[in-house]
């Protein structure tokens, strides 16, 4: 029985409404995203599995699109996420300015080792650009984040930015990861041992490890 994944991360998309958070999500999870799924079920998050450094990383992406104005709701997610996308729209100066607010919110309320990445979306709309790439770079530097300009429309940098954040989360939890690996190995030994003893038991406790 192959394991579906080794670890599970929760990533959260933050940013003003209309910056294209949901578009990014749709694009990224393309293969698992069928419009037919959303009619009745809620899509509070979407899933995708990435293979990073030999580890099957299942990422669960939260998108609270449409709920930005509920003051306390989005913040409830901060505590439960390991990584955060701060998304603005390169054609909207305002959405860029708001990144500062979102970022300081995260600094204030999110766990210390939460990983962040800055994303300037809609890079295909060059003619309407209001925020220079350099500005994005600068801000990202100031907050010590990586920075990507993306386009959900042309699929530019979508996988890259999601993978990058997932990698960062992995690194940030490296210690845990090593322990997980060891325990996985032990698990195998244990399984072998049990077989010797004639006990068959298919439990794999680590199958759904989740760091949260």
């Amino acid at each position: 029985m192959a394991k579906q994944y080794d670890v599970l991360f929760r990533l959260l998309l933050l940013g003003d409404s209309g910056v294209g958070k949901t578009c990014l999500l749709c694009r990224f999870t393309d293969n698992e995203f069928h419009p037919s799924h959303i009619s009745t079920i809620g899509v509070d998050f979407k899933m995708k599995t990435l293979l990073i450094d030999g580890i099957k990383v299942r990422i669960q992406i939260w998108d609270t699109a449409g709920q930005e104005r509920y003051q306390t709701i989005t913040k409830q997610y901060y505590r439960r996420a390991q990584g955060i996308f701060l998304v603005y729209d390169i054609t909207s100066e305002r959405s860029f300015q708001h990144i500062m607010k979102w970022a300081s919110d995260v600094d204030e309320y999110a766990p210390d080792n939460i990983q962040k990445i800055l994303v300037g979306n809609k890079s295909d709309e060059e003619e309407k650009r209001q925020v220079a790439t350099e500005q994005g770079n600068k801000l990202a530097m100031a907050y010590g984040m990586d920075f990507f300009e993306t386009s959900a429309f042309t699929n530019h940098n979508i996988t890259e930015s999601f993978t990058r954040l997932a990698e960062q989360v992995l690194v940030a939890n490296k210690k845990d990861l090593d322990l997980l690996r060891m325990s996985v190995t032990d698990e195998l030994n244990l399984a072998a041992l049990e077989e010797e003893e004639g006990i068959t038991d298919g439990t794999d406790a680590t199958e759904k490890s989740c760091w949260c």
């Binding site: 419009p35 899509v43 509070d44 699109a65 709920q67 509920y70």
Partner: peptide
């Protein structure tokens, strides 16, 4: 209502 708003936002984006 937020739940509905999210679902509708997603529908709007996806289709």
């Amino acid at each position: 209502l937020g739940t509905f708003l999210t679902v509708l936002t997603m529908l709007d984006t996806a289709l």
